[in-house]
Design a protein around this nucleic acid. Structure first.
Length: 579
RNA sequence: GCGCCCAUAGCUCAGCUGGAUAGAGUAACUGGCUUCGAACCAGUUGGUCGGGAGUUCGAAUCUCUCUGGGCGCACCA
């Protein structure tokens, strides 16, 4: 089943083409900007009229006449308005017809795609040297949402967690670990707090030149494959991954160990990357480093800007690894799209990597490489969190605080439940609030981290959506016999009709999110959906209505619940029966 | 210096490929629980869409320019 928007675009587009004589006219049908304009509006007539040199209102009314003559059952009424808009009013019967199809199988709320793509979604990708902080939240949940959305559409999704496990810091960490292990046995207990472990190692590194030397030689030994160092490294990585996994589980993020493709995974390919660049005559030596210079990139003072492939000391850099990753995704995984959900500050890096990859043949021609950039989460001072000075907030602390506040609230709002229930509700509500606070913002803008907005439970927040869902479930529990076969037979109240139309539009929003990768569109949609339900709930008695009307409203409520649940699931937010 | 991103109500933010009178939340004030869950609903107040110019039937949206922020620009990732 096509979306309403898609169907209308086809319908109006064909009529428009016939009437004006131009092939493939875009009628530009969008949801109506105001209720008095109907359900949808076509904005495309004016520009087409301009193109063919006719009066836009005349053209619009010709189109209306043409469509009316064909008597499409979906359309109740068409009107020409303003300078040449066509306002589209849908037929109630058709809406209810569609609704009953979906009622029989709510999976139809989001139709599966007829062109299945294989898609890599690269997200989260923390540096394993340190513990995840609040700045890691965005990429992790935006990426997870996109993966869920695309997967739900039927695409074949390959999640890739490109964790940093191979940088210079690991020499320092391993050295420190070996030092502690010598004095206190196998796994140092300090490792349980990665953050302070890192800080202690760093202090040691800065304070003691001998230690710094040991650390530097550790890197060389590690990368040279020294068995003892590899063991220590592996232990450290395992420990760090446990921290990450605990957070993913807590956040209800779908990443697991099998999605790991660490930096170190590409080690074996790096020599080949250099070789390939050499063969393509793209490599040149500058100040001792091997670089690729592309004319379209210049740096300070108009100097050509290099992509450094190999350092003077022979070490590789992240551009090298990223090229290997492009190659792996393009030729081994053979994907159509590769999404990089990474901080916007790395835009230039990705532009360069993508350009080099195209030029040198690391990317096949048909792969779409997309940097899904997101804005930086700033500290109170309006500047990005400084990871080096460590004045960040741990992600786990944010989540715990959210859960604590949710617990306080739920025990106050819903007295009489047992402690285990409170804990379950608090966990889900708290985590949902944090995720939604971030997902509901346009991903491209920077924003200042703020406890109160992150942990708000009122207004446009996850608890509002969860509350709407819980309300519906509460009603359905009171009247739960044989609802499956009950259909929506009334949309005569405007709140009923608005709600039903909104439900039909989930798939349109999902299409947009899949195409443009903006999860906040889905948040906006769900908030509006929940709002429409709240209004319907206030103005239309459900359980007290006469039998037929009651059943229709129960069916509408049940369909709303299904829509909310599926939408929230795409955001990675779990629903609750009670809260 | 060059490049990318941003500037919308007191605060936090939406605004879909340019569409009709720019919307929410929050804060403030008012009203609504003996009636399906008040984490809710209804209402009031709140705007020169940073300034200016241009493109056109139409601009918060596109172009230019100025101002003010953020970020990036050689061996960290």
């Amino acid at each position: 089943m096509n979306t309403l928007k898609h169907t209308l675009n086809q319908l109006v587009g064909e009529a428009l083409s016939i009437v004006c004589g131009l092939a493939d006219c875009d009628p530009n049908v969008i949801t109506a900007s105001k209720p008095e304009f109907g359900d949808y509006q076509s904005n495309g007539v004016m520009s087409i009229a301009k193109k063919v040199g006719t009066n836009p209102r005349q053209l619009a009314s010709d189109v209306v006449e043409k469509i009316t003559a064909d008597a499409n059952p979906l359309i109740a009424k068409l009107e020409v308005a303003g300078p040449g808009f066509i306002n589209i009013h849908l037929s109630n019967t058709a809406l209810m017809q569609r609704a009953s199809e979906i009622r029989s199988d709510t999976q139809k709320l989001i139709p599966t795609t007829n062109k299945v793509d294989k898609i890599v979604v690269d997200y989260s990708s923390p540096n394993l040297a340190k513990e995840m902080h609040v700045g890691h939240l965005r990429g992790t949940i935006i990426g997870d949402c996109l993966a869920r959305v695309l997967e739900r559409q039927g695409h074949e999704i390959i999640r890739q967690n490109h964790v940093g496990d191979w940088g210079t810091q690991f020499g320092m960490l391993i050295s420190y670990m070996r030092e502690l292990r010598a004095s206190q046995g196998d796994l140092p207990t300090e490792l349980s707090d990665l953050e302070s472990f890192y800080r202690a190692a760093k202090e040691r590194f800065d304070a003691d030149p001998d230690f710094a030397d040991t650390a530097r030689s550790s890197v060389v030994k590690l990368q040279g494959g020294d068995a003892d160092h590899l063991v220590a490294w592996q232990q450290f990585i395992d420990e760090s991954l446990k921290h990450c996994q605990a957070l993913y589980d807590k956040l209800n993020v779908t990443l697991s160990r099998k999605d790991l493709k660490a930096e170190s995974f590409y080690n074996k390919d790096l020599d080949g990357v250099v070789k390939k660049l050499e063969d393509a005559s793209l490599l040149s030596v500058s100040n001792g480093a091997r670089c690729v210079f592309l004319p379209e990139f210049t740096g300070k003072d108009g100097e050509p800007l290099p992509v450094i492939i190999q350092k003077t000391d022979g070490g590789y850099l992240y551009a090298t690894t990223d090229l290997a990753a492009v190659q792996f995704r393009s030729f081994d995984l053979k994907v159509e799209r590769s999404l990089y959900v990474v901080d916007a500050r790395q835009s230039l890096h990705f532009q360069q990597v993508f350009a080099v990859a195209r030029k040198a043949g690391f990317a096949s021609e048909n792969i779409s490489l997309e940097h899904i950039a997101y804005g930086t989460m700033m500290g109170r001072d309006g500047r990005p969190f400084k990871t080096r000075s460590g004045d960040t907030i741990k992600l786990v602390d944010l989540l715990d605080e959210a859960i604590r506040r949710a617990h306080e609230l739920v025990s106050q709002k819903s007295p009489g439940l047992d402690e285990a229930t409170y804990l379950e509700i608090a966990e889900k509500v708290g985590i949902a609030a944090v995720k939604y606070a971030d997902l509901s913002k346009n991903r491209t803008s920077d924003y200042v981290f703020d406890w109160s907005s992150m942990l708000s439970f009122e207004g446009n927040t996850a608890p509002y959506l969860l509350y709407a869902y819980a309300r519906i479930r509460s009603i359905l529990r009171k009247q739960n016999s044989g609802l499956e076969s009950v259909q929506i037979t009334s949309v005569s109240e405007s709140t009923e009709r608005n709600l039903l139309l909104k439900i039909m539009q989930l798939s349109e929003v999902v299409d947009m999110v899949a195409r443009d990768c903006y999860p906040n569109l889905l948040c906006n949609y769900l908030y509006e959906l929940a709002g429409l339900f709240m209004r319907f709930y206030e103005s239309c008695p459900i359980l007290k209505a006469d039998t037929q009307l009651r059943d229709s409203r129960l069916a509408l409520s049940a369909l709303t619940a299904a829509t909310l649940k599926q939408g929230l699931d795409l955001l990675g937010i779990e629903t609750l029966e009670k809260m």
